[in-house]
């Protein structure tokens, strides 16, 4: 990650967006997907991902499923109904944020 501080505040939203698009996912898959989409720019660290997932789960925004895959148990996360609604809110919040940042960073582009 180029500047992790900047991404930090949006980590939950990024996770929720990924789950919205991909249905259920497991932890490692999320880190890989984020890397893939951003062509290696966004590297969600393990130490940040799981706490974020667990927090979202505790807030009833995510639900979990467990399955036996290869010789091990795999925990999948997916959005709950509440989580799906919340994703819409958070994404529009994030878009608003991006818009404002753009105005600040590049005032000439705004009207």
């Amino acid at each position: 990650m180029k500047n992790s501080q900047l991404y930090k505040g949006s980590l939950n939203t990024i996770i929720m967006k990924l789950l919205e698009e991909n249905g259920r996912m497991y932890g490692y898959e999320i880190t890989q997907k984020a890397k893939e989409i951003t062509k290696g720019e966004l590297n969600i660290t393990e130490g940040a991902l799981y706490p974020a997932l667990h927090k979202l789960e505790a807030e009833d925004l995510l639900d979990v499923e467990v399955e036996r895959v290869d010789n091990r148990l795999r925990k999948y996360y997916k959005l709950t109904e509440k989580g799906t609604k919340e994703t819409v809110n958070r994404l529009s919040e994030l878009e608003e944020f991006i818009k404002n940042m753009q105005t600040i960073v590049n005032p000439k582009l705004s009207y």
Partner: peptide, 8 residues
């Protein structure tokens, strides 16, 4: 269990 799957 979650960490084992991740590491694996």
């Amino acid at each position: 269990t979650e960490l084992v799957d991740h590491l694996a």
